[in-house]
Amino acid sequence: MKHFAVGALLLGAMSLPALADYTLIAPANPGGGWDQTARTMQEVMQAEGISPSVQVVNVPGAGGTIGLAQFASQNSGNADALIVGGYVMVGAILTNNAPVSLADVTPIARLTGEYEAIVVPASSPIQTIGDLAEALKADPGAVSWAGGSAGGTDHIAVGLIAKAAGVDPTKINYIAFSGGGEALAAILGSQVTAGVSSLGEFQAQVEAGTLRLLAVSSEERLPGVDAPTLKEAGLDVVLQNWRMVAAAPGLSEEQKAKVTADIEKLAKSKGWQDQLTAKGWVDTYLSGAEFDAQLAEDIAATEAVLKDIGLVK
């Protein structure tokens, strides 16, 4: 009986699916939202026992499209490879007329959403979002903005702010950086007038008093955030940056289901929920056919906005 019991246990253990060692591409330099998302996924997936090993690899450039192209070409059929993407990547694909798009990989799930924040250095004479809007109206080119990649959420936010202020959005002086760390250094060094990025990327510096938070792009004021919305300031702009994870192209249905199950475990874990709270990320988890439909809608809406503010013809 003992032999039978041990044999049954061994047989049961052998039939359990092996845990995957994942390689996770963050298609930007360290310090930005994609990098933060990837490293948070790494930490939680390992801590929660979803994967024994998650390796994060940074492949920066062109709003994530360089990393996306490399990922798609090198990983066909590889169920252990993942890439972080989102709104910024959708915009960059359109503005760069990139040869590779999200149609060339296997979208798995939307994970988080985060609102945009507009900041200036603490030493700036600009005290309010109203002051910044007035400066923009007076001379759009004299107001320089640091943000992420051209055509991404940050760029779109500045274009929408300009349009809401009655300024030609094609006249804005937007300086694109490939990583959040580089943009932050330019803002802190007063090399630009203002900065725009997801709130979480500025939070530590705002709390430390080195940056002044002027406004956020949410519909209503955010709990615990001492700043008005753009709408409160008379600028009718609401914008949320969402982030997603995709798998490689060429996966079987069984492989896709396994990856989706792992990402669902991540999204529903206590460790992930704790990180969302700590970082101020909104839980926007969505997968399967619903996510595929939402992604198609988001791509169409992003293209419409980019045309509206003159970034895509």
Rank of each mutant, 00 (worst) to 15 (best):
A233S: 13
E116M: 15
A8I: 06
L16A: 15
T302W: 01
D35H: 04
A261M: 02
E303R: 15
L276N: 13
P107H: 08
T260R: 12
Q55L: 14
T193D: 01
L184I: 07
V119A: 08
V59T: 08
Y115A: 09
Q275P: 05
I156H: 09
V120A: 02
I129T: 08
K171E: 12
T260D: 04
W242K: 07
P30E: 02
D298E: 04
V119F: 07
V84G: 01
M14R: 14
D35K: 09
Q294E: 13
V158R: 06
Q46A: 13
G86E: 00
L102I: 08
L214R: 08
Y87V: 10
P27R: 07
I187H: 08
A13R: 15
G33R: 03
P30S: 07
V196S: 11
D236M: 04
I25N: 02
T277M: 09
A293P: 01
G189H: 05
Q46E: 12
N241Q: 10
G271W: 05
T106W: 00
P140R: 06
I156Y: 06
A165V: 10
V167G: 01
I263S: 02
G180S: 05
V88D: 10
L222I: 15
E290R: 15
G31C: 07
P125F: 05
G148K: 08
M89A: 01
A257N: 07
V305I: 15
S149H: 04
K279W: 09
I50A: 00
K268C: 12
Y285A: 07
E254T: 11
E253F: 08
G86W: 04
P125K: 13
G49I: 04
W145N: 09
I93W: 06
A165G: 03
L188Y: 07
N75M: 06
P17I: 05
S178M: 04
L251R: 03
L160V: 09
T106G: 03
I126Q: 04
W272K: 09
L82I: 07
S53L: 12
A26P: 00
S269K: 12
L306M: 01
V90L: 12
Q36G: 14
V158N: 03
A13S: 10
W34H: 13
S124V: 14
E220N: 13
V237K: 09
T106Y: 00
Y87L: 11
S53T: 10
D308N: 13
E43Y: 11
A5G: 05
T112V: 15
A293H: 02
I93A: 05
A293S: 10
W145I: 14
S123Q: 11
V100S: 10
